[in-house]
Simulated assay, not measured.
Amino acid sequence: MNEEMEALNRWVLTELPLRRKPIGFSGSCLYLLVYVDDIILTRSNTKIIDDCKLLLKTKLRIKDLGHLKYFLGIELLDNNDCLVLPQRKYCLEVISEFDLLGRKPAITPLESGVVFSNINDHDSTDSPPENISEYQKCVGKLIYITLTRHDIAYVVHRLSQFMHAPLKSLLKAAFRVLRYLKGRPGKGVTVKRNNDFVITAFVDSDYAKGSMLRKSVTSFCIFLRNNLISWKSKKQSTVSRSSAEVGYRALTSCMWYLLCFPVNIDVVTVVVIYGGGWWQEANGGGTYTLKISI
């Protein structure tokens, strides 16, 4: 192990300026991901990855495990036209850890009309759980599952706001998410092969969603070649006075992210989704599509 660490110390990594290519770049790319003692290689040219493995063997003692099938709890299923990234094994391990394998699966991750809060004014039986770490562990594992299961992202985002002061009702809601995953443990992100270099962004906002601080939520997701590559859902830093202000803040946040995108972009399609307020006030309502030149 000491030899590997000494070899890594001799490597020099240089960060290129944004949207700049190295001298002599021929169009072929090699991507190397290192996590502790695991290395993943992917490429745009088969010969490049073979040359890289030969180079690594001269510097390090490595073992070639072949095509990637499982990494950090994420499985990789390679079909002819797409890649599927589920977390089936990890989901079942988490469900088993909290002794929910024998429970009935839930149809939805969240019951209708539920409002999360750690302030108990109505139900005297809804007290903090005896072991708060159980709630923290459960929500922490759910956060990792949201890497490939975006259908539970909203409820997990809400549950994660009460990590230090949960109630039994919140723990019950977290267990419901696990029961929902029990019915569909094999779902995941699909990455399709597509030659059309098109970037599309979907923007939405939720006005005064925070029941405690009345802060609104910015949400957007970005697709490259019809594949989801980036997403965000975060509370805005200030309290807005109108839903129109909230919506334009969300649109600005998304556009700023696209401006910093590490690829050459000429035109971006931004789809603004209004959920009943700000875009209707400004543009007459509905879903509106913008083609923006950068």
Rank of each mutant, 00 (worst) to 15 (best):
G183Y: 01
N264V: 10
I294V: 13
I132R: 04
I222H: 02
F98E: 00
T218Y: 10
V115W: 04
G73C: 08
G24F: 11
I292Q: 07
E93S: 03
V217P: 01
Y144M: 00
T108I: 13
F202D: 07
T200P: 00
I62G: 03
L101V: 08
M212K: 15
R10C: 15
Y135A: 07
C138R: 07
A201Q: 00
A7C: 14
V268C: 09
L251R: 08
K232L: 05
F261H: 14
F98N: 01
I107L: 15
L213S: 15
R149D: 00
E93N: 11
D50C: 03
E245H: 10
L178E: 00
L33N: 06
D126M: 09
M212D: 15
S124H: 11
R214V: 07
K63V: 12
C254K: 02
V34K: 04
E134D: 15
G24R: 15
I132M: 13
L92P: 04
S219K: 07
I152E: 05
E15V: 10
I265Q: 06
D37I: 06
A244F: 08
R176N: 12
V246R: 03
A153R: 06
S160F: 00
H157I: 04
A174F: 00
R149F: 06
E134M: 11
L32T: 14
K235Q: 11
R61Q: 14
T218K: 14
Y288P: 01
L159G: 01
T252K: 14
V203W: 11
E130F: 13
M1N: 10
G73V: 06
K168M: 12
L65H: 04
G102A: 09
K89F: 00
C260H: 10
I292L: 15
G285W: 01
I95Y: 12
G247E: 15
V267C: 09
S219Y: 00
P105T: 04
I23G: 13
R158E: 08
L101Y: 00
H164S: 15
L92Q: 09
P22W: 04
L224Y: 09
K232W: 04
L110P: 01
H164G: 13
V239Q: 12
R176V: 01
Q87I: 00
I119S: 02
K89L: 04
L55Y: 13
D81A: 05
N227Y: 13
K182G: 01
L224F: 05
A173S: 14
T287G: 05
Y288E: 12
I23A: 12
D121L: 06
P105S: 11
S26L: 12
P109S: 10
A173L: 06
I49G: 08
I39W: 02
I273H: 02
R184G: 03
I132E: 05
S26C: 11
L76W: 05
